[in-house]
């Protein structure tokens, strides 16, 4: 059964009030979500994924005081997961992948975002065709900005600006509606 933001938030608040059972349920529900999160970013390094999942669970448990109940829970959870990932890359001295579309999708809904079954068309439909095309080409089709620029007959900086503005618009819409 898909865990929704509101279900997990209810468990989180239960835990904040001292309910150990709710807290245990929350942590257990986070496991598959975190596994998907780290797998998508690390590939198939199996042991590292599970280590990071556990590090994140420990941090979620120990640093609960940093959660603001008026805010979206998923953003809090994944910001901790992302911090742990960046720290892992720092220890391994690897290049950190750029977040963008995924970060925004994450705040929209747990399960869908984690399994990348988000309706991308629906999201991008609200943008201008220039912006949605630029985002599709660079973030979904995996083209570089230069390739996307030559496909669209516009300059590379035009592509970058369109992507940036489009993502900002999406983020504003999603955080506005998620509150």
């Amino acid at each position: 059964m898909a865990a929704t933001e509101s279900q997990l938030k209810a468990l989180m608040i239960g835990g904040l009030e001292g309910d150990a059972g709710a807290h245990a349920e929350l942590l257990a529900a986070l496991v598959p979500l975190l596994q998907a999160f780290f797998r998508r970013r690390l590939g198939d390094g199996h042991a590292e994924v599970e280590d990071l999942v556990q590090e994140t669970l420990i941090a979620v448990h120990n640093r609960r005081a940093s959660y603001d109940r008026d805010r979206v829970l998923s953003a809090w959870i994944f910001s901790i997961a992302r911090y742990k990932l960046v720290d892992y890359f720092r220890r391994m001295r690897r290049h950190v992948p750029l977040e963008g579309l995924e970060e925004i999708l994450v705040t929209e809904g747990f399960e869908a975002a984690a399994n990348a079954r988000m309706d991308v068309d629906q999201l991008l439909g609200g943008l201008s065709s220039k912006q949605s095309l630029a985002i599709r080409r660079t973030r979904i089709d995996g083209l570089s900005s230069a390739e996307a620029a030559s496909h669209g007959g516009i300059s590379e900086s035009d592509v970058k600006i369109s992507v940036h503005r489009g993502l900002k618009l999406l983020a504003a819409r999603l955080t506005g509606s998620a509150r």
């Binding site: 309910d19 150990a20 556990q54 669970l57 420990i58």
Partner: peptide, 16 residues
């Protein structure tokens, strides 16, 4: 295992 970790973490769940 994740279950064992969670079991040990939830031994102490003070209210926040």
């Amino acid at each position: 295992s994740h279950e064992a970790l969670i079991r040990s973490l939830v031994k102490q769940v003070p209210p926040v």
